[in-house]
């Protein structure tokens, strides 16, 4: 079994991935936003159609935009949408921040799996198993309680990353590397919380 990378190798790899993703894809590197797009694929698919409509029919685009805004922020947002000035019948400019195809978000997640599998083969750690390893059993929970624990943990991650607006890649690496205040705040809070909870799990519970 091969040893894990030294810290400087991992730092170089993750740092350059964060930078070159931004440069070549034209968007902030963030895995939770890709997750969210895939999870809400119906809404995202409709948003992709909106982009197409916007290029040809401004009135239909405005109506669809109001509908999408109501879906995202509730009925209170209708007054904002109505008060907004009418859209000009010119297509919006296509910038580098234009929406990625939904299938690209799915591609990112699938390729993380492929990359991780490749790593596991290379370092000799691949093993199909129905538990999360001895450390999880010792530190968190053992036996059948593992299943609800993982599910609840996943729900917390799902709600938390969307409420905080990012995760360890979006806030932690992309945002912090650019000294964005919201990312510095979110990262210090989620990392600090993980430190406290992990310490409690290890030494108290």
């Amino acid at each position: 079994m091969m040893a894990y990378w030294d810290w400087w190798m991992g730092a170089l790899a993750l740092g350059t991935i964060t930078f070159f993703y931004h440069m070549l894809v034209g968007r902030r590197f963030g895995v939770s936003s890709s997750w969210e797009r895939v999870v809400h694929w119906k809404v995202e698919k409709r948003a992709e159609l909106l982009d197409d409509i916007a290029m040809s029919d401004a009135a239909a685009f405005q109506a669809a935009l109001q509908e999408a805004t109501r879906a995202e922020f509730g009925d209170d947002s209708s007054s904002v949408a109505v008060a907004a000035p009418p859209l000009q019948p010119t297509p919006p400019p296509v910038s580098e921040s234009a929406r990625l195809p939904l299938s690209a978000s799915l591609t990112l997640l699938v390729m993380i799996l492929v990359g991780a599998f490749t790593a596991a083969i290379i370092n000799g750690r691949f093993e199909l198993r129905t538990d999360m390893g001895p450390a999880f059993a010792d530190i968190v929970v053992d036996g059948p309680l593992m299943w609800p624990t993982l599910f609840v943990g996943g729900v917390m991650v799902g709600i938390g990353t969307r409420m905080a607006g990012g995760c360890s890649s979006g806030h932690g690496m992309s945002g912090c590397s650019r000294l964005q205040p919201v990312s510095l705040l979110a990262t210090s809070v989620f990392f600090g919380t993980a430190v406290v909870v992990s310490t409690l799990l290890l030494k108290v519970i």
């Binding site: 993380i112 624990t149 979110a186 919380t193």
Partner: peptide
């Protein structure tokens, strides 16, 4: 509160989204 939820979930499940 979102970051607190995320940090707690990460610590107990080992899973940030990736």
């Amino acid at each position: 509160p979102g970051a607190v939820l995320f940090g707690t979930g990460w610590a107990i499940s080992g899973g940030c989204p990736s």
